[in-house]
Amino acid sequence: MRQIVLDTETTGLNPRSGDRIIEVGCVEIVNRRLTGNNFHAYINPERDSEEGALAVHGLTTEFLSDKPKFAEIANELRDYVRDAEIIIHNAPFDLAFLDAEFDRMGFPRFATHVAKVTDTLVQAKEMHPGKRNSLDALCDRYGISNAHRALHGALLDAELLAEVYLAMTRGQNSLTIDLAVEAAASDGSQLIEAVSVAEMLIVRASDDELIEHEALLDRLDKEAKGKCVWRTEPVTAVN
């Protein structure tokens, strides 16, 4: 499956009042792996950014003055995203701007060129109801460093969102998945979709992490005044 994590920066908040896209960043994921085949473009919007927007992205009119106009990158962008699943955080915002730019080109709406659009903000609210679900909050929740993010940037934010998305949707390699599928099948509904082991991203512990783990078990042994259950050898059944 080909997925594209997409983000934009804009001159303001409302495309209906003439605000334009000034940056597009896309990160490609194939079979849950980052490919490095990314798309990035700064765009001359032919207008100034609003003061509030400029404080967020820092892309000045002077910096953007020699960059291509959207019409010059539209075909390349459309070909890049074609038939992929597009992953966006707060999708209605970016789609409104993309639709406005595509309309100026005489293209159909953005979503007609892609397989589907997935909104990670909607997913996050379902997974973490009542909690903050901004990109920064999700980075903190899933242990993804965004310390290098002084200002918003479309490609940088797309890269962070790609890591967040993979963390949010990581499957479990256990019998729990199989049991859930069987239970769901018994009443005619589907609660969870089994995940292929081949598609799972396996992250192995580093040497430092293994040392820290052993130190934690040592502390548990001391507090339990014995051996903690994670160090207990399983009893082998004898027939």
Rank of each mutant, 00 (worst) to 15 (best):
A167C: 14
A162R: 05
I86G: 08
H148I: 01
A167Q: 14
V117Q: 02
E72L: 07
D66E: 13
A111T: 11
Y142E: 01
D157C: 05
M168V: 11
L166I: 12
L179R: 14
F102G: 01
A115L: 11
K131P: 03
H89L: 04
H152C: 02
D178L: 11
A115R: 15
T120M: 04
L155P: 02
R149A: 01
I87G: 02
L98W: 07
E126G: 15
D157A: 08
L179M: 12
G153N: 10
D119E: 08
A91M: 08
A84W: 02
N146C: 13
A150N: 12
L95C: 07
E72A: 15
T118Q: 08
E126Y: 14
E62F: 09
D157Y: 10
T169L: 01
L95A: 03
G143L: 11
R170E: 13
T120L: 04
D94C: 07
P68H: 07
A124E: 10
E126A: 15
L59G: 05
A162P: 03
G143Q: 10
E72V: 06
H89Q: 13
D119G: 09
A91S: 14
S174R: 12
Q123T: 07
L98M: 14
K131C: 08
E85D: 13
P68E: 00
L98Q: 04
G58H: 11
